[in-house]
Design a protein around this nucleic acid. Structure first.
Length: 562
RNA sequence: AGCCCUGUGGUGUAGUGGUUAACAUGUUGGCCUUUGGAGCCAGCGACAGCGGUUCGAAUCCGCUCAGGGCUGCCA
């Protein structure tokens, strides 16, 4: 039962091991992922999903998907649908255990009645402002509400009438009778029910009182027979209340365990900020490929495997931390390197003419689809007299350590020939065309005389290439921790160059066979995928992440010296 | 200021009284290479501080310092 080899260890799994050893829950492990349907899921949620579903898998237990829909004013159906889609896409299965907190409203109300009958809850007439004043502060104890000692009968009557809709929003609340001087503010007679004459996306107008998180959550866990209720650190101070409710009701009592939520550099993870970016039009929507949302990452070309690996490898602890975006990028490269088919694509084309190559000749050269996977086979690549290469692969006046094409220099064109640059043609200062020659003896890329060449570059045949729009994405923010700036609005820290659209890219014809969301590598450039907004006329390609680029690093260093 | 939580290389984690303090990423150098990719080898780099317990402390205790959370009828 205990997963020992090749599995991540962390304090949560230690707790579970111990519970299993002491037979605390009859050997059961039952977790849940309980999002509120008020936004789209992001990579931080993925961490929680991988934790909860992952633990269930490892211990041969169960994990529920549960919507914590206790606040009708913030929640929408659209979000529910997207959450279901995203969890499924990540590869997890809740079987028939899809639940909604709203399904338990009746039961929760009955429990509230029980608490009132036990003299442990009361209806309070204080308004929000007064309740706030009576609560005291971090350092000063609170005071009892004048309504705190109403009789059980009166409370029962009032609660019923709250439910029946006799009162307006905010007129009354149901509170637990705990301790107004408790050092933990959450224990100062917390609110259990508030009046909200709002239509709920699932229960409609059946209810006009809605349970608060603290009341609802433990009950949901208890009702579903959860063993380990894993949540984020900000609920640590709520655990005593979680325990109090369950203990005082005398019902089955799961245990709450808190872990640190995920933070990533150069992005924001809070729902509020994400919503602001979406609604303010700073991004194209919840699935903008620059966003850390699951749908955005999917559109950008991230694979479920890469995300799951990432979540596993960052571990889980109780320290607030911020993971390098570079590590996420490492994880996606790691997966895509093994699985992606290779193609040739010229993002910023420069025309070249092979002067000694016949005008009407076309050769089919063999290219390897994936050097990491022999089973991926090979394909034919058309080669002809006029080709495109990458603008960045030619320099008129090459600096040290630039190994690519330059006047008089010979390089290998991948899978084809050794090619020498004879002349560059300029228009208004820009190089617009290269005149080159090829060595017919080097077909396939090998020189019979054994001479070496410093670099290999990619290319496409002009007559055969297809046009594409390539969207290059960069980090969304210019600062590592945009959300952590005290005096600056995070939106001012947006990276103005987070999206670059190239409209005249030339890619090899085989790309035509791919479908939206298909992932692949453009050799020497990075990992890409077919954009879902591709049309008949316009092939859209999204860059997921670039390859590690040593030349770019050298270039940067050379510029620094200047 | 009261209560709660947390401090291990740049970053993320492991380490549960005896280890040359581990792994990954990053970084530096080298090897290899028909992707300046991938891979391989090597180097650099950490126990917040001070006391205490102990033959022995990253680990246990105390204090200090630092970071985070809590004063919604949000979750």
């Amino acid at each position: 039962m205990n997963p020992t080899n090749n599995v991540t260890r962390d304090f949560i799994r230690d707790i579970i091991d111990e519970d299993l050893r002491t037979n605390k829950y009859d050997g059961r492990v039952h977790t849940r992922f309980p999002p509120e349907p008020n936004g789209y899921l992001h990579i931080g949620h993925a961490k929680s999903i991988c934790l909860n579903f992952g633990i269930a898998e490892e211990y041969k237990g169960l994990c529920n998907l549960r919507f914590d829909d206790t606040n009708p004013t913030k929640e929408e159906k659209e979000y529910t649908q997207s959450i279901i889609e995203d969890v499924r896409w990540l590869g997890f299965d809740w079987e028939d255990r899809l639940f909604f907190a709203s399904d338990y409203f009746g039961q929760m109300y009955e429990y509230a009645v029980q608490l009132v009958k036990d003299g442990k809850a009361y209806v309070d007439d204080l308004n929000a402002k007064e309740i706030n004043e009576y609560r005291g502060t971090l350092t000063k104890p609170g005071r009892n509400s004048p309504y705190r000692d109403r009789s059980v009968e009166e409370n029962l009557d009032l609660l019923e009438r709250m439910k029946a809709g006799e009162f307006a929003d905010g007129e009354k609340v149901l509170r637990a009778k705990i301790d107004m001087a408790h050092p933990n503010l959450n224990m100062r007679d917390p609110i259990i029910y508030r009046i909200l004459h709002a239509s709920h996306h699932r229960t409609g107008d059946k209810w006009c009182i809605y349970p608060m998180y603290d009341w609802a959550h433990g009950l949901e866990d208890s009702i579903e027979d959860i063993t380990h209720s894993i949540c984020t650190l900000e609920f640590e101070n709520h655990r005593p209340l979680y325990d109090w409710f369950l203990d005082n009701l005398g019902v089955y009592h799961p245990q709450q365990i808190e872990f640190a939520r995920l933070n990533l550099t150069y992005t924001v993870m809070s729902k509020r900020m994400l919503l602001e970016l979406v609604e303010g039009g700073y991004v194209s929507g919840w699935d903008d490929p620059r966003l850390p949302t699951i749908s955005g990452m999917r559109r950008r070309g991230y694979s479920p495997t890469a995300i799951r690996n990432f979540c596993k490898r960052i571990g889980v602890a109780k320290v607030n931390s911020i993971v390098d975006l570079e590590f996420l990028e490492h994880c996606i490269r790691d997966d895509l390197n093994k699985t992606s088919l290779r193609f040739m694509g010229v993002l910023r084309p420069l025309k070249i003419v092979i002067e000694n190559y016949p005008e009407d000749k076309v050769e089919e050269l063999e290219a390897i689809n994936n050097p990491e996977d022999p089973n991926a086979g090979t394909r034919k690549l058309p080669f002809s007299r006029v080709l495109y290469i990458e603008q960045g692969d030619f320099m008129e006046d090459p600096p040290k350590k630039f190994y690519r094409l330059a006047p008089g220099r010979e390089v290998r064109f991948r899978y084809s020939y050794f090619i020498t640059c004879k002349e560059s043609i300029k228009e208004g200062g820009d190089v617009v065309e290269l005149r080159c020659t090829y060595d017919p003896a080097t077909r396939g890329g090998y020189a019979p005389d054994g001479r070496k060449v410093k670099s290999t570059i990619h290319w496409v045949s002009a007559a055969h290439a297809i046009d594409a729009e390539v969207r290059l994405y960069d980090r969304l923010f210019t600062l590592e921790n945009p959300a952590g700036q005290k005096d600056t609005d995070f939106k001012e820290l947006l990276n103005p160059n987070s999206l670059e659209v190239l409209t005249s890219s030339k890619v090899e014809p085989a790309l035509r066979n791919l479908k939206p969301f298909d992932r692949f590598q453009f050799e020497r450039q990075g990992y890409f995928c077919i954009g879902p907004d591709t049309t008949e006329e316009n092939l859209v390609i999204n860059r997921t992440v670039g390859l590690r680029d040593i030349w770019a690093k050298i270039q940067k260093q050379q510029q620094m010296k200047k």
